[in-house]
Design a protein around this nucleic acid. Structure first.
Lengths: 343, 343
DNA sequence: TGAATGTATGTAAACGTTTACAGATTTGTC
DNA sequence: GACAAATCTGTAAACGTTTACATACATTCA
């Protein structure tokens, strides 16, 4: 069933059918009605492939991310799909598992499918390879937007959380509660965001003239074990911290595990500020203070940035998003919101 | 940069370039080398759109699911993407939010993009609309595979968990621990899987000649609140249950919440068997017995079923997968594995 | 030697749309 | 009634591939 068949049945030319479908150009009301009826009755769907070929861009956008089963990326993806859907576009999803080979394949396939745009979450160990692929996309005039990835400080379109500020705020929260000995668990994440988070802690401690102790800084990975091990290390110290700051959601859970095992009561025996959406913990009845990246906000902003730069193409923008500090059940918005434009 | 440009640069015809790219037909070794070099040097990617048009099917498969931020669906998606990638295909992701309008749009767009196949997780309140769309896909010779959705008992390709058996096993687990008063929380899920789970409980109780009590059966929704409310109801009874069986992961968490709040210790004051991957809970140090649908297995099996029926098209298959009973840290595989074929 | 087969390459049609252009009809204005 | 403008419709080229077919040369075998 093609546009030709529809045209034949309706007794008009393909051009007319095309005009009806696209609501473009002059069509007599009567003709339009007739054609629309035939399209409906025959369950005809125009071939997006042929459409793409002639118009030289598809109605696809690609989302490329390292697979992480946690809620952040999955909420981002959902939001993006929803936004793209509103524009009549579909989402090509690529998980990379942080493997370089799959990353390159994802870009290749996205190119081959003539995507209109690419949304990129942190994926590569080597930022260099990423930069190359983004440059190649640019050469094809395919806009790329980075999510929560301050890649190399290059001037790409991006939506980020000010990770340094977030952890600065988190640290201050603990300081305000009277803690002076604060252990921090950094997450060696891809793309250096982990170290920015660490910088926020360092800066805040410095601003409040609290001497730093190397033993209070634990360089962990992006997993629960890191949180657990960090705590074990911290609390084996002769002078252990009184509070812990976790820089990713997995580590936060690991801390929980340790505290529970040691019968340490949160807020009494030990302070904790977590990271990201750990609403499951909340669901279980634990009031946790956490620094939540607003995944839905991020997805939405990234999409509008992408569509914007499909139209303009010109200047690069950076959107810095607020985080939400969810504080023991009550919640209030963080303050770091700004919108910068860069020529 | 098109195949024409490459052909011109290489001084050969487009047919030759095509043959080189597809490793199909005769090409002199020398010519092949030259063309390959030129393709590589110019970063040429063949246009998948033009390819699809001529071959009348794309290298796309669609995954349509109601969005649930929990780990099950997101792991399934990742696995599918990985399998599709191995076949050189890309995944179109559609979240429906269980809204009928978005569901229809997802199918439409999948059709328009000429997908090779559709993987369908439970999406529709109304199974009827789903059946219609699946029939339409079949009319277009697009294979559809259902995941964990025993839709209407119709003979579609599908990969399912024997939900009745799973809950049967879960109930028996509690019986073996000596419990006789077992509360069950069903989840009114889409597509009746919830009631099959309930049937498993009923059957097991009956087989063990334990009288049923209506007050021990709570019909909940797919959320944490249901788990919490169910427990509140159960333990307000004059003769409350001694153990609880939750039929979805959210409800399991809700139970936790209640037990924690009431200072009821798991395994001592109350028994609990949960559902699905609640590894987060495990991460926090709680040893939970849970009935886990093997999401990765399911994704993998669904893909192979899909690719298989692209080739054959003929008979419909049903794969019944094992679940994994994760029992207080130690784990062993459930026994319900079988592969049925239906003409 | 010449036919048959195998290898290598090119030509051109086809896939299902969109759209520039042209031609035909209607409407409006003086 | 004539001319311009607006409205309606059709023809055909184009998008970037694949592939059936044709052609040409090389090899094999009787």
């Amino acid at each position: 069933m093609t546009i030709n068949d529809i045209a034949k049945i309706a007794g008009v030319s393909v051009a007319t059918v095309s005009r009806v479908m696209n609501k473009k150009g002059y069509v007599r009301e009567e003709t339009r009605k007739k054609v629309e009826a035939i399209i409906r009755d025959h369950g005809y769907h125009p071939n997006a492939v042929a459409r793409s070929l002639i118009s030289s861009h598809s109605s696809l956008i690609a989302v490329i991310m390292a697979e992480r089963p946690f809620s952040f990326s999955s909420k981002v993806l959902e939001t993006i799909e929803s936004c793209a859907g509103e524009q009549g576009d579909s989402v090509l999803f690529y998980g990379t598992g942080a493997e370089q080979e799959r990353e390159l394949r994802a870009f290749s396939q996205a190119f081959e499918h003539q995507v209109k745009g690419i949304l990129l979450l942190p994926v590569m160990e080597s930022g260099e390879a990423a930069v190359n692929m983004i440059r190649e996309a640019e050469a094809r005039e395919i806009p790329v937007v980075l999510l929560d990835w301050d890649l190399y400080g290059e001037d790409f379109d991006r939506v980020v959380v000010d990770n340094k500020q977030v952890l600065y705020d988190g640290t201050r929260l603990l300081l305000e509660e009277g803690h002076r000995k604060i252990g921090v668990i950094t997450c060696r994440e891809v793309a250096k965001e982990g170290s920015r988070r660490r910088d926020g802690y360092l800066q805040c401690m410095k601003d409040h003239q609290i001497p730093l102790k190397d033993s209070y800084i634990y360089d962990g990975d992006f997993d629960e074990e890191s949180g657990y091990d960090a705590c074990r290390t911290f609390f084996a110290l002769p002078d252990p911290p009184t509070a812990v700051l976790a820089c990713c959601s997995s580590a936060t859970l690991g801390c929980f595990h340790y505290f529970k095992e040691q019968n340490m009561e949160l807020g009494k025996d030990v302070g904790l500020v977590g990271f990201d959406d750990i609403s499951l913990v909340e669901s279980m009845g634990y009031p946790v203070t956490t620094l939540d990246r607003l995944s839905r906000e991020m997805g939405r902003n990234a999409c509008s940035l992408l569509y914007q730069s499909m139209r303009n193409g010109a200047d690069h923008k950076k959107i810095v998003l607020a985080t939400r500090t969810i504080r023991r059940g009550s919640e209030h918005m963080g303050r770091c919101f700004s919108l910068e434009t860069k020529g």
